[in-house]
């Protein structure tokens, strides 16, 4: 054993830390980078052997093809509409319930919260068939609305949980003062709680948006055509006779990823807060 001086030891551990940081970056970003590289090769070039790590020719043909041949923009639009509407819907009804649970006194507070949370534990697979039938009965098959409602069901529990824990931390004095001034719970909710909760709503909204954008099982089952099918369902159901057009698929993957990665990076703080709310407290 060579014994190192303290300075050397620190230098060593610093070096190790930076090496680890580099490994983490590669680990997290490499798959996406590789998909991107594949997507900008000319169509067909993705199958060339030896594999080109740096494309000798860059082309956007895969992107053009997915837009022209498959009208990918319509699918992106479907994803966008469904995810946005789901977000608004869950925030609207979720925040009302969260407010009731966090701030109002009534007998079934805890049991209502638990009931809502149990829904969050249910696997999609136990609900897929009945929901499929209900949506069909309601004539909402292959529509935005059918998907919006279903996605809302799955995002509601986490939204209520997040918002309730957010509301619970606002000072009660504000509300008591407003009550004394003659405000009813519904006006307190609108005039005091809502404006103060913008960050909380934001966190919850981003999580709901990401969840809806990425949801697959219901989107696959409840939509069939360009009318309502979401972008990621199209990508995974792209037809391929003998082999799949991987260049184009990867172009679609990148296009589907861009919005959420941008959201996550720009609103990182809120995403983190949303993910960890309620879980971290000392």
């Amino acid at each position: 054993m060579v014994s190192l001086s303290y300075r050397q030891k620190r230098l060593l551990s610093q070096t190790i830390m930076y090496a680890v940081a580099a490994i983490i970056m590669i680990y997290c970003l490499f798959p996406i980078a590789w998909i991107f590289i594949t997507s900008i090769k000319p169509p067909g070039a993705e199958f060339h052997i030896p594999i080109e790590y740096i494309p000798s020719k860059v082309s956007l043909d895969n992107y053009i093809e997915i837009f022209v041949e498959h009208k990918f923009h319509y699918y992106l639009l479907n994803s966008l509409v469904v995810a946005s509407a789901t977000t608004i819907l869950v925030l609207a009804i979720g925040s009302l319930s969260a407010y009731a649970i966090a701030r109002l006194r009534f007998k079934f507070r805890i049991s209502s919260l638990l009931t809502i949370l149990v829904v969050g534990m249910m696997p999609s697979i136990v609900m897929i068939l009945p929901i499929f039938l209900i949506i069909r009965e309601l004539g909402l098959m292959n529509t935005w609305l059918g998907l919006i409602i279903t996605h809302a069901v799955f995002s509601l529990p986490i939204t209520v949980w997040l918002l309730a824990s957010y509301f619970a931390e606002l000072p009660f004095d504000l509300e008591d003062a407003a009550k004394i001034d003659g405000y009813t719970p519904s006006s307190i909710y609108r005039k005091i709680i809502m404006p103060l909760s913008v960050p909380g709503l934001f966190s919850a909204g981003i999580l709901a948006f990401i969840a809806s954008w990425g949801e697959f099982m219901f989107a696959l089952t409840l939509t069939h055509t360009i009318q309502a099918r979401t972008a990621l369902v199209l990508i995974t159901t792209l037809p391929g006779a003998y082999h799949l057009k991987w260049g184009m698929i990867n172009a679609g993957v990148i296009l589907t990823l861009i919005p959420i990665i941008v959201i996550v990076l720009v609103f990182q703080k809120w995403v983190m807060r949303g993910l960890t709310a309620g879980a971290v407290k000392y």
Partner: peptide, 14 residues
């Protein structure tokens, strides 16, 4: 922190 969060955001089917 920004990089580590990226894989989480990738939808499972993607």
């Amino acid at each position: 922190r920004a990089i580590v969060i990226v894989p989480w955001a990738v939808p499972a089917i993607i």
